[in-house]
């Protein structure tokens, strides 16, 4: 090893005070978002698999169902639409849902490997760190959703041009809500192996018991109980928010629901990651070591 010359390292020129001010918060936020994007760029397989999943549904499942499942004129559509058109917001929601859970998986992995500790021992408030991480993850989801919309455009899914802009806040908010839920779930998963349970008990029920694949009125006809479950499912509201926004309309009920769920999930996640209140310190020593 090279002889150590610690004298060559000047003390930090940026004082504690300046680093804990607004510029410090901004630097911290930028760093967290930048890392999320970098990780995503380095994991091309993740990007591809996130895209392939909804595309398979769009190209194969939706094409097959077009013949058996007609969609009547329902808001926000002003005419009869092809099943592919109807299902597109649900598939965008699928991208956000899987990305959020993938992010949750990476947090469990980070916790097992110790990388999560790097984040949590930052001197900035934990709520700020967690929200920054959620926003970073949301930025990645946004990128994936737009690539999917671009491909879908060539499959004759052509929302109004302005819809591509108005859908952005809906995508972002939905991504935050699902990310906050995933963050909370990551705090209660003890080991990475338990993530398969999340797939079965969270992702699939959320996706199928929603308006992603079929309109709610059809579900109501089939089963009033399932209809009620769909109505309280946060994912339903995310899909509807995206569906309306993509057609330059606002579904106030869904917006309120998504906002409310975001606040609740975020509060639960921040609570769970707060050492003085949350769950982490009660479960056992880090990495199984004492």
């Amino acid at each position: 090893m090279k002889p150590v010359a610690m004298d060559s390292l000047a003390p930090a020129t940026e004082s504690f005070r300046s680093r804990s001010g607004i510029s410090g918060y901004l630097a911290c936020f930028n760093g967290i978002v930048w890392r999320e994007v970098l990780r995503f760029v380095h994991q091309r397989e993740r990007f591809l698999s996130a895209l392939v999943r909804p595309l398979v549904w769009l190209f194969i499942f939706a094409a097959g169902f077009r013949q058996v499942l007609g969609v009547s004129i329902i808001e926000p559509y002003e005419t009869y639409v092809l099943y592919e058109v109807f299902v597109t917001p649900g598939l965008i929601g699928m991208i956000l849902l899987f990305n959020a859970m993938q992010s949750s998986l990476s947090m469990v992995y980070d916790r097992e490997t110790g990388a999560m500790r790097t984040l949590l021992i930052s001197p900035f408030p934990r709520w700020f760190l967690l929200i920054s991480k959620l926003i970073g993850s949301g930025a990645v989801s946004l990128l994936q959703a737009y690539v999917f919309l671009l491909i879908a455009y060539f499959w004759e899914i052509e929302p109004p041009p302005l819809g591509y802009l108005t859908v952005m806040p809906a995508l972002f908010l939905s991504s935050l809500m699902l990310g906050a839920l995933a963050l909370f779930i990551s705090s209660i998963i003890k080991q990475l192996e338990n993530f398969a349970g999340v797939m079965n008990f969270v992702i699939f029920p959320m996706f199928f018991a929603s308006s992603a694949l079929y309109p709610l009125w059809r579900i109501k006809e089939a089963s009033p109980l399932l209809y009620e479950i769909c109505r309280i499912n946060p994912f339903t509201h995310a899909v509807e928010l995206i569906r309306f926004a993509l057609y330059v309309k606002l579904d106030l009920g869904s917006l309120a629901a998504v906002l409310g769920y975001t606040v609740v999930f975020l509060a639960a996640a921040i609570y769970a990651y707060n050492p003085s209140k949350g769950l982490l310190g009660r479960r056992g020593p880090p990495g199984g070591a004492a």
Partner: peptide, 11 residues
């Protein structure tokens, strides 16, 4: 650089 950001250092 990520760790530096977590401590509020600019890029």
């Amino acid at each position: 650089a990520y760790h530096a950001a977590l401590h509020g250092f600019g890029f």
